[in-house]
Design a protein around this nucleic acid. Structure first.
Lengths: 265, 265
DNA sequence: TATTATTGTATTAAATCGACACAATGATAG
DNA sequence: CTATCATTGTGTCGATTTAATACAATAATA
């Protein structure tokens, strides 16, 4: 996939069609190497990372806008997205302090925009941001940065650097909501590959909940829910017994998530 | 408490100071006669009910705005308020269809505004609404309608009439979030009077969860959490054994809610 | 004093829990 | 080929919890 080019009159288009004062930021979560990871974008020309975000058109629902923004900025489509919180604090605009504005100007000046100039003032107005989180299978997705970004990177949520503006707070709120609503979210089926081991599933729950769980008891409880299908063994090449692979019975899983999975680890 | 009067230049003040396109709606929940109730406002001159709502000033945090709006429109202050969802759908503006606009005009024309005229256009722009829910002790509060409203009423959530715009959807989403996040919310201490019976508490949980629970088991589980203090018996005047009164140990309750009360009814 | 409805607590079998044990396995090293 | 090793699947077992029910203890009324 090619990196996306800015359309002509991008800035004008934004000024004319975006709902003022409102924005969307996305916390894209994936799971890899027993770690919960978040997709970050790096601005061009500066060591500045942020969550993928964007603006809402006046003729667009928020949910649609979230999907479009995600597709435009990272190339990801058809993924599970859910709104989790709206950040309406004044302080969140404080990153537009003089030096921050200068930095923004400096970066934007280096990024060519077809047919017009950047309107820095437009970006430095007060914006209320609605947060969406997404759950994706990292192996099945390839994120591509847009013309504002140098690259995308999956970053362990334990090792996230200092991000633009209040994006660290947004991430933390997303993780909190993920924990609280865990039993009502399709985390397993969304974050894991189609086939996975019991250990994968356990480590996933452990990273989300931030606790360690008893192996044999976890297996007993999970299997009792009757939402897993057992497949062939996975020969890993490691010097020990090979684990079985499992997949989700989609209908049973969906029914459980709908009612809230009755875990009590 | 007197019904509040509109300040001079109310409309101008709004036009000049409100963040455009953004609004807040509040779902105020209380508990009375074994029923979960919501506080509704009735517009003057028409049989039109709605949730208390309002606009956010450009210099104001969303949380502050929610408290102010609630105080202005119902007189309620110092209550537990929590954001639960932002409604950004285009369809929510569909209630500004021609006949709805006419109705709005008709109502507003009958409500005197000091020093200026109503700007109906201002109200019919696209608005994104952020929902807050509140949990209050009905007995300890007296809601007073503002100058736009004829009266406030506590209405059982089972018997809510058709409300303005998408307010029924907002209410339903609030109730859903209340259920999902139940273990992380101070529902007991916020909705019940200081002293209450075990039956009160059980019926409260039953109305929120929409299920009926086993009496003796409920009592056992709740007491085991160690967050209740037992007081004297309550002589109700009824022809049967009098129940004990209980209150919450605030600190233990807060600690449990913080971590998520481990119920599994 | 008997009746009545509700409440506090006990009982009991079944289910579940946490913690641990242990054999089975798949590679590797000797 | 055998020993070793780390990990996995499953079993065990006492303690705890659960659901369902039973029943005595009220507080008013008849």
């Amino acid at each position: 996939m090619e990196q996306q080019e800015p359309q002509r009159n991008w800035m004008e288009h934004l000024q004319a069609n975006a709902l003022p004062h409102n924005a969307i930021d996305c916390v894209i979560l994936g799971y890899q190497n027993e770690q919960l990871k978040v997709l970050l974008l790096k601005w061009k020309f500066e060591d500045l990372w942020c969550l993928p975000g964007g603006y809402i058109y006046q003729t667009e629902n928020f949910d649609e806008a979230a999907h479009r923004i995600l597709a435009e900025r990272t190339g990801l489509t058809s993924i599970y997205l859910k709104q989790f919180y709206t950040f309406g604090q004044l302080e969140r605009s404080q990153y537009y302090r003089p030096e921050q504005v200068a930095l923004l100007k400096k970066i934007l000046a280096q990024i060519p925009l077809e047919g017009q100039d950047w309107d820095v003032d437009w970006f430095t107005k007060r914006f209320v941001s609605t947060g969406y989180f997404a759950l994706v299978d990292i192996e099945q997705t390839t994120a591509q940065p847009d013309f504002l970004s140098e690259r995308c990177a999956w970053c362990s949520v334990e090792e996230v650097p200092s991000l633009l503006a209040d994006h660290n707070k947004i991430l933390q709120k997303a993780l909190e909501q993920l924990r609280i609503q865990l039993n009502y979210l399709p985390v397993g089926i969304s974050l894991l590959p189609t086939k996975f081991t019991m250990k994968d599933l356990q480590k996933l729950y452990e990273s989300i909940l931030g606790v360690s769980l008893q192996r044999s008891n976890f297996q007993r409880k999970i299997l009792k829910l009757g939402m897993l299908v057992r497949h062939e063994k996975q020969m890993t090449g490691a010097a020990h017994k090979a684990p079985y692979l499992y997949s989700f019975d989609k209908e049973k899983y969906a029914a459980l998530v709908e009612r809230g999975i009755g875990f009590s680890f």
